[in-house]
C-alpha cells in the first residue's frame, strides 16, 4: 500500500506544532522544581555539605604560589564583586615586584591590581633581574593582633580559625587597622565599620572555594581543609617544599602561606 504524502500545508502545521510542544515542554522542564541540587554548583571543598559542620574540629589553610601568579587581577575583580568592596579599599590586592641587578626592589600596585598588569613598568632605568606578582589578603593569624586590640570584641576568631568582624558590634575605632601588620583592613566609608578579607567564609560554609581561589586561572591561590588529606593544601603543607609566612617576626602565626616568596616580599 502506498502511503499518501501529506500536503505541504500539513507538513508545515505539524512542524509548528512540534516546535510549540517542544518549547512548552522545555520551559516546563526548566521551570518545574526538580530539587535545587540539579542546579547547585558542585561542592568545591569536600566534606562540608550534607554533613553536620563541627565548628570546633576544622582547620583551613590558604596557600599563595607566587611562582604561578600572572598578575591578571581576576582575583581582585572577583573579590570586589563578591563583597561590593568600595573603590579605593581592598580586601585583597596583587603587588608587582621588580628586582634590578643592583638588588634594588621596585614595588607597585596601581588600583590594587584590579585592572591587571597589562604593561611593563617603564620608569625603571636599570637592567631587570627578576619580576613577580604577590597576591595579598588576610593572613588569618592564629595570634591575631586585630582580635587582641578590638575593644568591643567585634573582631573575633571563630572556632574554625577564621578571623571575622561582627559589623553590628564594631564601633569603627580603627585600632585593629593600626594593629594589623599586613594592612588588610579598612573602614568601609558607607557602613563606617571595619572590613577585611574573610577567606569568603560565607562561601566556605557552603562548601565553595573563596571567590579569588575559584577564578584564579593559574592555581596561584589555593584553599582547603587540613583535615582532608586529599586536599591540595594538605599535600603542600605536608610536602617538602619551602613555605613562608609574611612578617614572621611579628609573632602572628598566619594561616596564609606563601610558596616561592622571595625574601624581599613584605
Amino acid at each position: 500500500m502506498k502511503i499518501k504524502d501529506p500536503s505541504p500545508d500539513m507538513k508545515k502545521r505539524s512542524f509548528l506544532k512540534n516546535v510549540l510542544n517542544g518549547t512548552v515542554a522545555g520551559c516546563l522542564y526548566l521551570v518545574y522544581p526538580m530539587g535545587a541540587d540539579s542546579f547547585e554548583i558542585p561542592e568545591q571543598i569536600p566534606g562540608i555539605r550534607n554533613k553536620p559542620y563541627d565548628i570546633y574540629d576544622q582547620e583551613f589553610a590558604f596557600v599563595v604560589d607566587i611562582t604561578r601568579c600572572i598578575g591578571c587581577g581576576s582575583c581582585c575583580v572577583a573579590d570586589k564583586r563578591e563583597f561590593n568592596v568600595p573603590d579605593g579599599n581592598y580586601r585583597t590586592w596583587v603587588e608587582r615586584y621588580v628586582k634590578g641587578f643592583s638588588d634594588r626592589i621596585y614595588v607597585d600596585c596601581p588600583n590594587g591590581g584590579l585592572d591587571g598588569y597589562q604593561s611593563p613598568r617603564t620608569d625603571i632605568k636599570e637592567k631587570i633581574r627578576d619580576t613577580f606578582f604577590v597576591p595579598k589578603l588576610c593572613n588569618m593569624c592564629r595570634e591575631a593582633p586585630c582580635v587582641q586590640v578590638c575593644p568591643v570584641g567585634a573582631t573575633f576568631t571563630s572556632p574554625d580559625g577564621f578571623v571575622l568582624v561582627d559589623d553590628k558590634r564594631c564601633v569603627g575605632c580603627a585600632y585593629c587597622i593600626q594593629a594589623c601588620p599586613y594592612s588588610a583592613r579598612f573602614i568601609n566609608p558607607e557602613t563606617r565599620v571595619v572590613e577585611k578579607c574573610t577567606w569568603c567564609y560565607n562561601r566556605v560554609r557552603k562548601g565553595l572555594l573563596p571567590a579569588c581561589v575559584q577564578v584564579c586561572p593559574t592555581g596561584a591561590r589555593k584553599f582547603g581543609s587540613l583535615k582532608d588529606e586529599n586536599s591540595e593544601v594538605y599535600k603542600i603543607l605536608k610536602g617538602p617544599g619551602v613555605l613562608t609566612v609574611l612578617k614572621k617576626e611579628m609573632g602572628t602565626w598566619p594561616a596564609l602561606y606563601y610558596k616561592g616568596a622571595r625574601r624581599e616580599v613584605v
Binding site: 582580635v147 578590638c150 575593644p151 558590634r169 564601633v171 565599620v193
Partner: peptide, 18 residues
C-alpha cells in the same frame, strides 16, 4: 569613631584583651 552611637559597647561588652 565611625559608629559613635555604639560607644557604650566599650563599657557594656569590653574585650578584656584590648
Amino acid at each position: 569613631l565611625g559608629r559613635p552611637e555604639r560607644n557604650f559597647n566599650m563599657l557594656l561588652t569590653p574585650s578584656p584583651s584590648s
